[in-house]
Design a protein around this nucleic acid. Structure first.
Lengths: 248, 248
DNA sequence: TAGGATAGCTACTAATGAGTATGATCCATA
DNA sequence: TATGGATCATACTCATTAGTAGCTATCCTA
């Protein structure tokens, strides 16, 4: 890795460039306006830091990523990173929240029972899959309580639990309105979430599909299960041969 | 944590006790026999080290576990651990192999097409689930290439790929013999493995079921999918109302 | 145009933890 | 009973890295 210690002119760092690109910073107005823009500017830079962290965590893992790495990726020094974020742990936490927020939004939209619960669940799972395939997916999925302070760990656990409970509720509603096969909501929710979470592990290496395509493919898998095809004689025969007992 | 630096008499450490418990070390015989027992003794102690590592990784994560921790858990010093294992990375690798081996064995047993492929797949997935819920499950599932040297990373990847290909093959066979609904083998294998892998994440905190019970419950989930119950008028009505399109 | 807030850098501290050099002890064998 | 290998401990080295102290430059506001 070439240490391109390019001496950027002060006040014109990569971070600043990133902010300037998004801001119409040339507009001058009242002092308040300028002040507001400063705040926005800072917010944008902060997000750039978090995105860079997510990218690094994604590729090298949390513990193998130093804050110097993140700073280098932004062509900035380490204290600059600390200027936008209080510590490494918070960086992971922010990535986690950025990843999980779209899923929570999807749940909020799925609240009202216009459609059968199965359809609402499918929509939510679609968003879930896309979130996991996003840049923040890895952080979302791999953020472990072991790496975080008790407070943050508790916060993350409660967010995760919220998602879990949301899936279970939709499953129960689906069983009740008849749109979903009777099932154990807890185990089914675990299976669904697990299958989708796992996307984060192989998606980096195999980006031949978009997040939406993957999510759609998974929904199909969930719907078909492992049932034999009901429309052929061979399927019926094979299904009848089954013994219906797991190995001891 | 009380630093119970209990001064164990030399030659009578925890490791030795563990080995002695399993060995009938009192038997004296020919020098060759003693020599063979020494070898076995060493092997048993080595396995105790690996188990201790798995336990620690399981609870604190790989990077948050120091070799001093593992040594302390065995009431032994760090160089003793190094006496049985060449480095930390190898420790993780051994845990990984210990976890994945039963799954490979299950695949070997599922080779001959006595039963329909669906039944063979169910059996394999049952073993898979139990392995993931085992003490080595976490290591198996969370061992990342990022934490390992290229050589070990490649080795682990090939083992993982072997499992993946095995599942796909059984899926294809099942589709062919009619015992499994036509599906995309790749995506279906990802979903199945993901759901099962995820067990490792929640099993530690929720050991209300045995590994076998969990595996059985998951198989049921896979078989039912999200299909509506076909045996009620409500189910059919709900199924007809569905729009069959993922959100845009 | 002075002053204060903003934004950033160089150069450090301090702690942790992987891995090792060296030597002590025990036991089987000769 | 002397010796060599097996087993384990004390006490280090060395590299990494999270986080900080203290300084500088810029720019908006009064």
């Amino acid at each position: 890795m070439p240490t391109s210690r390019r001496k950027t002119a002060p006040g014109r760092t990569h971070l600043a460039a990133s902010a300037a690109a998004t801001l119409s910073a040339t507009v001058r107005g009242s002092p308040w306006r300028a002040s507001r823009e400063r705040v926005r500017d800072r917010q944008i830079k902060r997000e750039a830091v978090i995105r860079a962290a997510a990218h690094a965590f994604n590729h090298k893992g949390y513990h193998n990523t130093s804050l110097d790495d993140i700073a280098a990726a932004l062509e900035v020094s380490k204290p600059t990173v600390y200027y936008y974020v209080s510590n490494k742990e918070q960086l992971l936490f922010e990535c986690f929240v950025a990843g999980i927020e779209p899923i929570r939004a999807a749940f909020r939209n799925a609240r009202s029972p216009r459609a059968p619960a199965r359809e609402r669940l499918k929509t939510v799972l679609g968003h879930y899959g896309q979130a996991v395939a996003s840049e923040f997916g890895w952080c979302m999925v791999r953020a472990e309580d072991q790496d975080l302070s008790p407070a943050m760990s508790a916060h993350i656990k409660s967010l995760k639990s919220e998602i879990d409970q949301g899936i279970r509720r939709l499953l129960r509603e689906g069983v009740q309105d008849g749109s979903i096969h009777p099932c154990d909501p807890k185990m089914t929710a675990f299976a669904l979430a697990g299958a989708l979470n796992w996307i984060a592990h192989w998606y980096r290496e195999n980006q031949s599909m978009t997040g939406a395509e993957i999510a759609a493919a998974f929904i199909t898998v969930f719907e078909n299960g492992l049932n034999p095809r009901a429309d052929t004689a061979a399927g019926r025969r094979a299904a009848q041969r089954t013994t219906h007992g797991l190995e001891r």
